[in-house]
Design a protein around this nucleic acid. Sequence first.
DNA 1: TCAATGCGTATGTCCGGACAATCGGACCGC
DNA 2: GCGGTCCGATTGTCCGGACATACGCATTGA
Lengths: 245, 245
Amino acid sequence: MSLDLSVDRSSPVPLYFQLAQQLEASIEHGALTPGSLLGNEIELAARLGLSRPTVRQAIQSLVDKGLLVRRRGVGTQVVHSKVRRPLELSSLFDDLEAAGQRPATKVLVNTVVPATAEVAAALGAAEGGDVHRVERLRLTHGEPMAYMCNYLPPGLLDLDTGQLEATGLYRLMRAAGITLHSARQTIGARAATDGEAERLGEDAGAPLLTMERTTFDDTGRAVEFGTHTYRPSRYSFEFQLLVRS
Amino acid sequence: MSLDLSVDRSSPVPLYFQLAQQLEASIEHGALTPGSLLGNEIELAARLGLSRPTVRQAIQSLVDKGLLVRRRGVGTQVVHSKVRRPLELSSLFDDLEAAGQRPATKVLVNTVVPATAEVAAALGAAEGGDVHRVERLRLTHGEPMAYMCNYLPPGLLDLDTGQLEATGLYRLMRAAGITLHSARQTIGARAATDGEAERLGEDAGAPLLTMERTTFDDTGRAVEFGTHTYRPSRYSFEFQLLVRS
DNA sequence: TCAATGCGTATGTCCGGACAATCGGACCGC
DNA sequence: GCGGTCCGATTGTCCGGACATACGCATTGA
């Protein structure tokens, strides 16, 4: 019952974060079962030698993640839901790798082009100014799965074709010190044109899943704009949305 | 320059929330322009007669919303991004109404059925037990736009056909005191079957956008499971994803 | 001229306490 | 038996202060 919680005050890791991690691990591990009370904050703080605000900060971070629910006069309990996968800015490459597949990438185009009006508007750049353009084909089991065309503002990143084939675009951006923050996505469907059909190994007129996305870093700067088409038999979008009051 | 901020201590609305609302309004209204500094927290607290933790709580809530960025040693500034629409658990009805369209709904089925294995698993109910089943057709400008089949756990809500045609399912649930919290969605595409094509006024084999969703309330209980098909020429999903570190 | 150092400033973390609001159950009266 | 009321428990809000940490800039030194 009484969890094995402790904090290391000599660690540079914030105390509230240490506690949050341990609580999250306990939930994931099953030591804290869904619906079980967490014990009141005051006592928890006393037991750990922390102040109540610190304990609250830890709990609050897990509430924000959707793992805990607070109810005044009752206490804090673990949510019943089994699905508590975090909603994430989905990276196709990471998704596939997590699913145990080994995605292959073929870079079709990696160059600098003048920005069209659409791209310039999405990236907040000047129309006709230089932008990077990358076209890639993603394959699984030797079969094409997605065709992706991405634009990046100039000077943001050195796009090495070899690296692009070995890993995902998001991972390269993170490695370059860019903190991805949010993305605006539009997902739709349409019939494949002749060119798209041939690229993806489908018949002309076959249904395609389309996605258009602009990604922003933590300063609100647009760092990527992309237009993707997916073979719906091989890929669908799966994610969790949180309600923001 | 100096914003017209003030708080009402006699109001039951929390002080940090009052401040957050005023700051958000100032940003939306343009009084705080993208990139501009917010002024340091200490002075802001002194000016408003609040303590620093209260001011921080207000600022933090806006940081979580993606409107502000904090940088240590620099200050807090408004993000540059123009798109700061909140990500929301999209309600088709609300989306359409916000877009100025007057959606019409035709309830095809509103009954209680035994749960199939799939529905039971999604709702966390017993297989074969009672669940509500609602089939609806959503129309805009007299043309069908989406076909929606939803399941709800028993005893959660009285589903009145008249109300269902007048408003959206989410709005009914909120009105019944259910606090929607998160949803797990899967979006894909496929060719329309003969039955789907006829329902939606498309040709057989035409591309359809499909969505499957399970919605949870704030206690983690599944409150709705639905399978929807959309005409891609008339609807696409648009939303904002936040990265969770 | 250019790089390393130091300093001011702002946010990040943490503390200890106080009172209010709300929930649930126990108690009491009818 | 039943309903309303009171009360303990727990989270929600707010305060004032303290020190740590990181960023940007000016100064200093080579």
